[in-house]
Amino acid sequence: MADAEFPKLKPAFTALLNIEPGLPIGTLSSGPNLVWVKLVSGTLVSHDHFPTKVNAKLVAGADWIHGDPGDAIKRLDVRSVFKTDDGALLNFSYLGVIHMNAEIASIFAGAASPGLVTGWGAVTHKFIQAGAEQYKALEDGVFVAVGRFHVKADGVTVEYKISQVIA
């Protein structure tokens, strides 16, 4: 099979999400361990060459993280709202996984030192919904991303590089 038959990725956005330490809900009756994480601030900015221009700030959001038994994988379920610089609201949600390693585990344990920047251990697929006409094309896109963590003295930022899947 030729490589040309596979989908391509078009750089679309960078998202920076500042998060609070997680609140452990505990082990659920269905098995996984649940942690709730509040998104406290963030930005969503389109790549220079992406046709739909977005410059938005987080209004509100949270992540419901389910840990697989053994904690080698954390499953993300993020729901958030961004407000663009022209006043439109975007529903921005995603599902994905974090492939845990010692660095990322230290962040979840609250033991990571400021200055730590992890590798790209998170992989997600994003959903964007918009009521404003100028952003409607985003609803028709399929988006995937890789993410990494930045530990700072005042908290943790999650950085995502988001691409649109194209034929």
Rank of each mutant, 00 (worst) to 15 (best):
V81I: 15
V81M: 13
V81A: 09
F82N: 08
F82C: 13
F82L: 13
F82S: 11
K83N: 10
K83P: 02
K83R: 14
T84A: 06
T84L: 04
T84P: 10
T84I: 04
T84E: 06
D85P: 04
D85T: 14
D85S: 14
D86I: 12
G87C: 08
A88R: 02
A88E: 02
L90A: 15
N91Q: 12
F92Q: 04
F92Y: 15
F92L: 08
S93I: 04
S93C: 06
Y94P: 03
Y94D: 03
Y94T: 02
L95V: 14
G96A: 08
G96M: 07
G96R: 04
G96V: 08
V97C: 13
V97R: 12
V97T: 14
V97W: 08
V97I: 15
I98S: 06
I98F: 08
H99W: 09
N101V: 01
N101R: 00
N101D: 10
N101H: 03
A102V: 08
A102R: 08
A102N: 09
E103Y: 00
E103H: 00
E103A: 04
E103D: 06
I104P: 03
I104R: 01
I104S: 05
I104T: 09
A105L: 09
A105K: 07
S106D: 05
S106G: 03
S106I: 11
I107S: 03
I107F: 03
F108I: 06
F108T: 05
F108H: 07
F108N: 04
F108Y: 10
F108S: 01
G110Q: 06
G110S: 06
G110I: 07
A111K: 15
A112T: 04
A112C: 03
S113A: 11
S113K: 12
P114N: 01
P114W: 00
G115C: 09
G115S: 07
G115A: 09
L116F: 05
L116A: 04
V117K: 06
V117S: 05
V117G: 01
T118S: 00
T118Y: 02
T118E: 01
G119E: 01
G119D: 01
W120M: 04
W120G: 00
W120V: 00
W120L: 02
G121N: 05
G121V: 00
A122F: 07
A122H: 05
A122S: 11
V123K: 11
T124S: 09
T124G: 04
T124C: 11
T124V: 10
T124I: 12
H125A: 12
H125S: 14
H125Q: 13
H125F: 12
K126G: 07
K126M: 14
F127I: 12
F127Q: 11
I128C: 02
I128Q: 01
I128T: 03
Q129P: 03
G131E: 10
G131R: 06
A132D: 14
A132Q: 10
E133S: 14
E133L: 14
E133H: 12
Q134G: 13
Q134D: 15
Y135Q: 06
Y135F: 15
K136C: 07
K136E: 10
K136D: 08
K136S: 11
A137N: 14
A137V: 15
A137R: 15
L138Y: 02
L138T: 03
E139T: 05
E139K: 11
D140C: 14
D140Q: 15
G141E: 02
G141H: 03
G141C: 11
V142D: 12
F143N: 03
F143M: 07
V144P: 05
A145S: 15
A145T: 13
A145G: 15
G147L: 04
G147R: 01
G147C: 07
